[in-house]
Amino acid sequence: MRLLLWLVALMAAAIGIAVTARFNPGNVVFFYPPHRIDLSLNLFVVLAVLLFLLVYGLVRAVRATLGMPKQVAAYRFRKREREANRGLRDALKALFEGRFGHAEKAAMRAAELPENAGLAALIGARAAHRMREPARRDAWLAGIVHDTNLKTARLMTVTELLVDEHKPEAALEAVAELNASGQRHIHALQWAMKANQQARNWPEVLRLVRTLDKRNALHPALSARLREMAYESLLSEGGMDAESVRRMWAGVPATDRLQPAIAARAATAFNARGLHDEARLIVEDALKAGWDERVVRAYRDAAGPEGSPTLLAQIEKCEAWLRAHPNDAELALTLGSLCLRQKLWGKAQRYLEGALSDAVDSALVRETHLKLAQLHEALGQQEEANRHYRLCALADLV
């Protein structure tokens, strides 16, 4: 349709020109003494149009010739840009595919374009790290140290790679620089937590775990395990005296104090420093929140002095717990041990034999045989005591 309209327009223009030229009597005269040239107006118009087209063509040709170097340079730049962008895409694809050698080579091609150099360096650093080439990795990262636009990306990459390489001190330096720039997003906090965990900086790990928990950025099981590891390490430090343990425990949140593993570790720490009253309170509070054999074991070590009201109160509590948990071997062993300490020989033997019948753990069986041997030895039944001593020695071999 468009072609038809163009044809109609051309034919109309041709007819109009032909009619106009036929009835145009005008002429053009050029004088250059002694010469004179007479031209019809129609011929003059045709020649003028042809001259204009010729001059226009010459000007375009000259401009094109003069602009050719610039066009060649622009063509080469576009070609280099296409190759660099293709290299960046290939580098990302190879990195995700696990072909780290190809990824680093493609990153080298991508880095030829200044706009891609920073991202290409991050890809190349990750690829070199996966190939266990720290020198090349550091060289890639050193090339973008002064790139302010990629500062956060570089520091995050450095932290992640150093944590993976188990260099927590260097990773924490990157974390400190990252924090100084005001970047505290969730991913940065997670890597900071891992770096502090490797550095065994447990107070900072606890702080970061609490922060991440508020943002729902940690799985509950992982959060609980990290808290257990942190408190276990803090409470196991040999250089802490009784007052230091008290101060540390006072700073533990109430919800964490009721966790079985944390409560058991704390009770053990208090028992080791002779703080048996505090240990018993820790165990009793934890068992009110939820039953756990690890906590019961710590209660056995927190026994009060022989004949004291404290020891009698412990026995009463254990008897009440045993009615609620009749087949708990750990609880039966604890109750038997407390009765043995109080010299309630009959009760002690009954509870210890009950623990022995329900016990499945070799360590529990060994300790129960040892308590029974001590019981029979106290009663003057040396033959029976020797039998339990032998069974205690054989428990590890089962």
Rank of each mutant, 00 (worst) to 15 (best):
T310H: 03
R132N: 06
V205L: 11
D358I: 01
R137P: 02
I123Y: 05
G380F: 01
A21V: 04
D358G: 02
L311N: 04
K214M: 12
A48I: 07
A128V: 07
P253Y: 14
T211K: 14
A127H: 04
P25F: 00
T157F: 13
K288R: 12
Q197M: 11
A199E: 11
L338Y: 01
R137G: 02
C339D: 10
A355P: 00
D213F: 06
I37F: 15
A171R: 13
Q382I: 15
R246A: 14
A359D: 01
V46E: 01
A324T: 04
A73H: 05
G57R: 13
F270Q: 10
V145M: 13
E383H: 00
R184F: 08
A324C: 03
A242F: 09
M193R: 15
H129P: 01
A395Q: 09
L155E: 08
F100H: 05
K194S: 06
A139Y: 07
K93W: 06
D285W: 07
L394W: 00
L340Y: 10
W191M: 13
L113M: 09
L7T: 11
T368I: 09
A18W: 00
K194P: 01
H369W: 07
L122P: 00
S223H: 03
A61S: 13
D164R: 15
Q71C: 01
G182K: 12
N85R: 15
Q71E: 08
N196L: 05
D138V: 12
R247E: 15
A230Y: 13
W191P: 01
V62K: 03
R227H: 05
A84C: 08
G238P: 02
L119H: 00
A170H: 14
A395C: 09
D213W: 08
A224P: 04
R78C: 02
L113Q: 06
E319P: 01
K93T: 10
A127C: 05
L50I: 14
P220T: 11
A171K: 10
T334G: 04
A74M: 09
A188V: 10
A103P: 03
R86H: 11
G354C: 04
L379F: 06
M240R: 15
Q183M: 12
Y231T: 04
A263P: 06
L88Q: 08
A242I: 13
A170K: 15
A373W: 00
A329N: 07
H388C: 01
A127T: 03
N179M: 12
Q197L: 12
P168Y: 14
T157H: 11
A303R: 13
L119Q: 05
A289G: 04
D285G: 03
L340I: 06
A320F: 00
D241H: 09
R265M: 10
L92C: 03
L41Q: 08
A84E: 10
A91D: 07
K347L: 12
W249R: 07
K317S: 04
P203D: 12
D90H: 13
A171M: 09
L208N: 03
A313I: 04
Q198Y: 07
D292L: 07
A302L: 06
G274F: 12
A302E: 06
N179D: 13
R323V: 07
A195Y: 07
L161T: 09
V45C: 06
G274D: 03
M248E: 10
G251L: 11
C318K: 04
L95G: 02
G98Y: 02
E367C: 02
